[in-house]
Design a protein around this nucleic acid. Structure first.
Length: 587
RNA sequence: GCCCACAUAGCUCAGUGGUAGAGCACUUCCUUGGUAAGGAAGAGGUCAUCGGUUCAAUCCCGAUUGUGGGCUCCA
């Protein structure tokens, strides 16, 4: 239940808009069968079953018909009926999918249908009272889907739409979509020369250009620094390993679909690594471990390769080769909770430093198929839960969504279109310690199996960077900006002084560029603005004679005058404090 | 992988069954200009790839590859 009346109203409008769309579709294409049509964020969709897909022209026709039906001011009438009657009615209407839906409704729940004109649909409701209340809507796109979301089932044709109280709200929403497209990391990646993906290299394999790499280096440096501060050891492992190791780990069984095909090296099969864990285990196993050594924390920026079906690739957010900011912790059972809390602290530090203050936290519990004892699962899940609560994190439980080897916490952040992407994760693993038979010597001199935790903070550097680009719309805070300062001499009489300033700022550790082109100052400013460089320094006659700098900020037109030392002090502070500056809020 | 759409110059995009166009960017020249585009000239394309239809294909048809929006799956 929600107390937010506006939201509820909007949901009702959208739900009714979905019905209106279904009615229009049935009028135009009577052979089409209806399935379900729920409300989603900012709109609705309806899935239909028919031979041929909808084409863009169909959408125009359907939308036009919806408007016509709206003008007919049809009352929308609710009716409850016995299950048998409902089944018969939808059978008579030749709507077999509705039969399945009815069969899923709990036996003590009422069966209700809504009728508007000649169109009747099974629905829990509520709905608006009359089609005339549906005016501000637009059909957006189509896609294929599967009945009940299962690809073994029938292929359905989905139409997405959006609906609002007023035309003004609709226009604002469409405008918001346009704005979101402008901050798409794929578009900005090209415009700001951050990265690329080429046909020749292959889909899902990223080329980091100098400016993107610069940011990546800063992300990595910060990451390493924090890990050394927090008791982690850095390790490095190769990009490939023998298939045998992956058989031991179990990946050849349960993760085979995601592993790149093996290659034959002198008669032995090798694969590109899809994960880093077995390597870290090898390092752990390289000598005998005492309880005094635990917890052992191995961290690696490990690049992994995973086969992903071509249709799922998406810019930097879903790729086939990516670098995980991975770590594996080996600990005594009584150390788990404390370690998880520390990991959560690190996650929050990282997210905050990069300006992500909106995220969703999920706790995934035991799935149907699992390894380890129920008792251990219970303990581990509780440890995760306790840690979440002690860290004061709000979270949702994803029942049964844990991986088969242990429960986990996932954290998701969103892109410019409000789609959530998993970045951070903390997972308990009961499987690998057993498979690789790792152990440590306890106080009592006996061997025990350590508990293993997998964890990543940014998840994949590619994905995290992609979200970062969208979060800031390419206007990175000073500490991350690939070019922090650009010098804009007004005439070539000012080049010499520009060189002097350039040297001083560069020696102070800033990333500086000079624009020595034979162009007017307005042109250079425009260019620097498009490149989203945080600080522009205009250098002309006045500055040169007085040995000062005229500084213009990226997002305000005001110019402030500084000496070089003043500016250096001010900006050094902005960098060292990782000030977020002018982060744009996502939509 | 599945459904639909798309693929033309470095970028953004027009366009036609008879051998290709703009703007920006690039190169050269003129201009030395004070806070979001000064002017001129030039160079740049096997119209994604392969096949078919046709006297003739960038355009029509098919396949392939890639991209986009979803579905399924996931960091």
């Amino acid at each position: 239940m929600t107390n937010d009346k506006t939201k509820t109203d909007l949901e009702t409008i959208r739900h009714s808009a979905a019905h209106l769309m279904a009615q229009a579709v049935k009028q135009l294409y009577p052979e089409t069968q209806v399935t379900i049509g729920p409300v989603i964020e900012d709109g609705f969709y309806y899935d239909f079953y028919r031979k041929s897909p909808f084409v863009p022209e169909d959408l125009e026709k359907i939308e036009k018909r919806m408007k016509e039906i709206s003008l007919q001011s049809l009352d929308i009438i609710r009716k409850e009926m016995p299950r048998e009657e409902a089944l018969k009615m939808f059978d008579d209407m030749n709507e077999p999918f509705k039969r399945e839906v009815i069969n899923d409704i709990a036996s003590n729940d009422p069966i209700s249908v809504y009728t508007q004109g000649e169109f009747t649909d099974l629905c829990r409701g509520p709905h608006v009272e009359n089609t005339k209340f549906l005016k501000s809507f637009k059909l957006l796109n189509t896609s294929a889907s599967y009945w009940r979301g299962d690809e073994r089932n029938k292929v359905l044709q989905r139409i997405y739409g959006t609906a609002w109280h007023t035309d003004k709200e609709l226009r604002l929403y469409l405008k918001r979509l346009e704005e979101a497209k402008k901050r798409d990391h794929r578009k900005l990646g090209k415009e700001l020369d951050l990265f690329s993906v080429t046909d020749e290299v292959g889909p899902g394999l990223i080329l980091w250009h100098p400016k993107g790499s610069r940011i990546r280096c800063l992300m990595e440096d910060f990451w390493k620094e924090e890990h050394f501060k927090n008791g982690y050891e850095m390790v490095h492992s190769p990009h490939a390993a023998k298939v045998d190791m992956w058989k031991t780990s179990g990946h050849m069984d349960f993760y085979k679909d995601n592993i790149f095909s093996p290659m034959d090296i002198e008669g032995k099969e090798y694969v590109m690594k899809p994960m880093n864990c077995p390597f870290h285990i090898q390092i752990y196993k390289s000598r005998l471990r005492s309880y005094r050594d635990l917890p052992v924390r191995y961290a690696e920026l490990g690049t992994v390769y995973r086969y992903e079906r071509s249709g799922v690739l998406h810019g930097l957010l879903r790729v086939r080769g990516f670098t995980q900011d991975d770590a594996h912790l080996f600990c005594r059972p009584n150390q788990i909770e404390e370690e998880i809390i520390k990991v959560l602290d690190l996650i929050l530090l990282i997210l905050k430093s990069f300006g992500f203050n909106e995220y969703k936290v999920y706790l995934s519990t035991r799935p149907d198929k699992f390894v380890g004892s129920e008792e251990n699962w219970e303990k581990a899940t509780n440890a995760l839960k306790q840690a979440l609560e002690k860290s004061k994190l709000k979270y949702e439980i994803d029942p049964g969504e844990g991986v088969f080897y242990g429960p986990k916490i996932d954290i998701k952040i969103k892109d410019s279109l409000n789609r959530f992407w998993q970045v951070s994760t903390v997972q308990v693993d009961f499987n690998l310690p057993q498979r690789f038979d790792i152990n440590y010597i306890e106080e009592d001199g006996q061997k025990y199996q350590p508990i293993m935790l997998h964890r990543a903070l940014m998840g994949s550097l590619e994905r995290f960077f992609g979200c970062l680009v969208e979060h800031y719309a390419g206007a990175f805070p000073l500490w991350l900006a690939p070019v922090q300062i650009i010098l804009l001499p007004i005439t070539d009489q000012n080049h010499e002084y520009s060189d002097e300033v350039f040297k001083k700022l560069t020696l102070s550790g800033f990333r500086v560029e000079k624009d020595l082109r034979n162009e007017k100052i307005g042109f250079k400013i425009r260019d620097a603005q498009i490149q989203k460089i945080p600080y522009m320094i205009v250098i002309g006659e006045k500055e040169q004679t007085n040995k000062i700098l005229a500084v213009r900020k990226r997002r305000s037109k005001e110019t402030i005058t500084f000496t070089i030392d003043e500016l250096t002090d001010k900006l050094s502070l902005e960098v060292s404090e990782k000030k977020l500056g002018e982060s744009i809020q996502p939509i």
